[in-house]
Design a protein around this nucleic acid. Structure first.
Length: 128
RNA sequence: UACACAAACUGUUCUAUCGUGUUGCGCUUUAUGCGCGAUAAGGAAAGUCCGGACAACAUAGAGCGCCAAGCCUUGUGAAAGCAAGGGAUCUAGAAAUGAAAGUUUUUAGAUACAGAAAGUGCCGCAGAGAAUAACCACUUGUAUACGAAAGUAUAUGAGAAAGGGUGAGAAUGUGAGGUAAGAGCUCACAGUUUGCAUUGGUAACAGUGUAAACGGGUAAACCUCUUGGGUUGCAAAGCCAAAUAAGUUACGCAUUUGAAAUGGCUCGUUUCAAUUUUUUCUGCUUCGGCAGAUUUAUGGCGUAAUGGGUAGGCUGCAUUAGAUAAAUGAUAGAAGUCUGUUUGCUUAGGCAAAUAGAUACAAAAUCCGGCUUAUAGGUUUGUGUUUUUU
């Protein structure tokens, strides 16, 4: 699978985001909080993702961008974990990845934690 | 030479792998499309403090409120602003003069540099008191005590801003007169402010003369004065527009309740009455309606069309960035620059190698011009201090 992260894989519909935060379920894997919600989405990808970093934790735009880019990079390289899973059951999910740490962590640590998060997401999907 | 400060300029590079936004060309099995190219982060993109462009609304004139600017001349600029020169005030240093205070000259720096003599407010600590000044000491009236008396002490009233003490600042300074003691109360000299005249200067302003006055500071407190500004900002503004509900129009279908007649019964049809409702006319009216006549719908269901407009999207928005939960990146390696340490060489200024560390501040969001603030390292200029040599 190609390790792309295109515009259609990003979550940008205001209505879906509202539904996600109102009705979604969440899991915690430090330093991330992940909210997910099953919902049909007008895209060919099995999931859309939004990445959020709080302005309260990182006051400078440069730092927020840095964290978002690290997360995006880690997700891009490891999204096949959930994509393979969802293609077999033919469902679509909206997912929000929220950064709740207060420091910029090295990429190797971020990638490790993203992989752990995605694996736990797959377990949750199977239960439903 | 080293260090510090200020200003201006500059503010890292390459390779590999996997990727992102916009865009050009080509290809295919038309989709998780692919391939080859082009292009994509600042000096402050920041703060959102000024000025404009642009947009909508408003627009007879004026006022209130709010905001901005505020010594002079010249240049530059669309404006805001910026630059140069000059003036004034303040601070620090030097020189001259003088017994000293001080004055003059000069050098450097600073100034949100209109008004405190229109009004209101405020002025830490200390001090009696910070703007209706009486704590101590001073002068004096009265009462009491002591005393032969002069007077002394205590209490209380009045006068007085000259002395003491506090303070950054205490009601202009020195001398004389004056007085119970005192006081710009009066006088002389000096100082300050304002008006007028005059001389120099484009002007700010400076000098001289004259008259009046003497008044604490603070406008980066309110405020007053002069000049300028219509209001709101791209979340402006314009356009396209799904589903659902409801609105409008057209067409079609069906026709509320009761009684009677017809009929063997049901359905149906007809008539009458009641209810609801529309249009028009007439009469009455307390102007809300009421009564009568006339007319046939109203409401419901279905189909189609249609206006507004929600989700969403496009323009605004890019003459080589143009994102929109917001692209311009991540990882690995190498180099450059600076600093420290060690080693070697050296013509003693440095040079080379190894190793360790550092490599800033900071992310476009309609666009321009400024202002302010942040900034590792490097370069240049200026100033100050120190050391060495002459």
């Amino acid at each position: 699978m190609r390790q792309t992260f295109k515009k259609e894989e990003k979550l940008n519909s205001l209505k879906i985001i509202n539904d996600l935060f109102v009705n979604g379920k969440s899991i915690m894997v430090f330093p991330f909080k992940i909210i997910y919600y099953q919902q049909p989405i007008a895209t060919l990808f099995p999931a859309q993702v939004l990445i959020s970093v709080s302005k309260r934790k990182f006051k400078k735009a440069v730092d927020r961008n840095k964290v978002k880019r690290l997360i995006r990079e880690a997700y891009r390289k490891n999204k096949h974990i959930i994509y393979d899973n969802l293609r077999t059951v033919d469902k679509q999910y909206a997912i929000a990845i929220m950064y709740i740490g207060d420091k910029i962590l090295p990429y190797s640590f971020v990638e490790e934690k993203i992989m752990a998060s995605l694996n736990r997401l797959c377990e949750q999907f199977k239960k439903e």
